[in-house]
Amino acid sequence: MITASKAKTDSKDRIFFFLSGILLLSIILYSYWISPLVTVAILTSSLRQSTPLALGALCGLICERSGVMNIGIEGQMLLAAFFGFLVNVWTGSLLLGVISGIAAGMLAGIIFALMTVSMKMDQIICGTIVNLLAAGLTGYFYPTGINATGKLKAYSFPFLSELPLVGPVLFRVSPIVFSTIILVFLVHFLLFFTQWGLRTRAVGEYPRAADTMGINANIVRFYNIIIGGFFAGLAGAFLSLEAVGVFERGMTNGRGFIALAVMIFGKWTPIGAWGAALLFGLALAVQTQLQFDQVLSIPHQFTGMLPYLITIIVLAIFIKRNRPPGSLGVPYEKK
């Protein structure tokens, strides 16, 4: 049985994941032995590519675990990327930029929560409103002629970064990439071992049961959406302040939606979603590398649509097998 409320997996699935993990690991080790430089480059790149997806998926699953379907992540990310960049330009501080990016993501979360939880509007339409609003605001207020003022730099951990393979990949990384790894495990821990997690999952599965036990389902949903906004905001800040260094119109490029596929693929668990994000990242990185080495001469339009194709395939195969939280998408109303 596949249950979303517990990090449970069928034993068959478990063996499958275990074996494919070993296979993947041996491929990595083998390619490291053949060509260490390229391997490190690919792994570093997949970690970077996976970061906004993993963060977006965290936002998605914190909302969905409490029963709210958030398709506005794309817009939250876009707003965060925009404000993070602007504040960085005005103040010259990357840290302030990241913080205001996060704040923008959470603010968008508050708007989304007001619509979905307080006004009980259709959640899909609310997500669409957030996306439209983000596109409109970032387009309308888009300042022309601003120059980039740098981006977050990679940090090398002493000693650890000298290790072979894992050193350069895991310990010579930029701050948001690194914090994402920590956040994934933190959220996993919080979700399955704390009061907040238990209540969140209860509200997502059966809000009335939670309500009768004195847990206000709508309040739980409200703050979970805002907490989710933190992660979407961080993802946006990553895009404009760490990955690219400037804001571009529509720079999220559908990542907010891909993140939802990543979340489903990972069965609504943070570690699972992270694994799925890494796979996505790996696919992208390998593709870029092949392109770069001119091994493949596929037009860039076709390689460019790879993530979108993978998303569709993932959704088509896994949505039936992975069970979403029980009350997903249904506004909770007391009798």
């Binding site: 409320s5 071992f193 009061q195 939670a210 036990m213 847990i215 029980g326």
Partner: peptide, 29 residues
């Protein structure tokens, strides 16, 4: 005790019983 049980389907009996009145140690349940 409601006619339609107020039980979260995927939870264990233990989780269902403590939901809303969880004993806390540090940050965990």
């Amino acid at each position: 005790i409601h006619q339609h049980f107020m039980i979260v389907p995927g939870f264990t009996s233990l989780e269902n019983i403590i939901l809303g009145s969880e004993p806390i140690k540090g940050v965990t349940i």
